[in-house]
Amino acid sequence: MRIVVLSDTHGSIDNSILKISQLKDVDIIIHLGDNVKDAINLKEKLGIEVIYVKGNCDFLGEKSDEEKIISLNNKKFFITHGHLYDVKKDMNKIFYRGKELGANVILFGHSHVPTVVKYEDILLLNPGSPTKPRIGSNKSIGLIEIKNDHIEGEILALE
Rank of each mutant, 00 (worst) to 15 (best):
L143F: 07
L6F: 04
I94P: 12
G61Y: 12
F108C: 11
N104V: 06
I70A: 05
A39C: 07
P133W: 05
G153N: 13
L124I: 13
R2M: 12
F78M: 07
L158T: 10
G109E: 08
E66Q: 12
I29C: 07
I155V: 14
G61E: 14
K54N: 05
C57N: 09
F108Y: 15
G33W: 00
N15G: 01
G47F: 08
I40P: 02
L72Q: 04
F78N: 05
F77R: 08
K89S: 14
G128L: 10
C57I: 01
D58I: 00
V5H: 01
G109S: 05
G55N: 01
I79S: 05
H83N: 11
D149L: 01
M1Q: 11
I141E: 03
P130W: 09
P127T: 09
M91I: 14
G109K: 00
H110F: 03
L158P: 12
S71G: 06
G11E: 07
T80Q: 02
F95Q: 13
I3K: 03
I135Q: 14
T80M: 06
I40T: 10
S7T: 06
S137I: 09
L84T: 04
I29T: 01
H112D: 07
R97E: 15
G153K: 08
S71W: 09
N126C: 10
V5W: 02
V50Q: 03
V53R: 05
N41W: 02
L84W: 06
A157R: 13
E44S: 14
Y96K: 10
N138K: 15
I94S: 10
S7A: 15
F108E: 01
E152S: 14
R134V: 08
V105T: 06
G98R: 08
E100R: 14
T115L: 15
G82R: 03
D149T: 03
K43Y: 07
K76D: 03
F59C: 00
K37T: 10
S21W: 06
P127K: 11
Q22E: 15
L143S: 11
S7D: 11
D8T: 02
G142F: 01
Y52P: 00
S71L: 12
K147S: 09
H31L: 11
R134S: 07
M1R: 10
L42H: 02
S140L: 07
S21Y: 06
N74E: 15
D25K: 15
D34F: 03
D25V: 00
V87P: 04
T80F: 01
S137L: 06
S140M: 04
G109L: 03
L72G: 04
E152N: 15
I40M: 13
G136T: 08
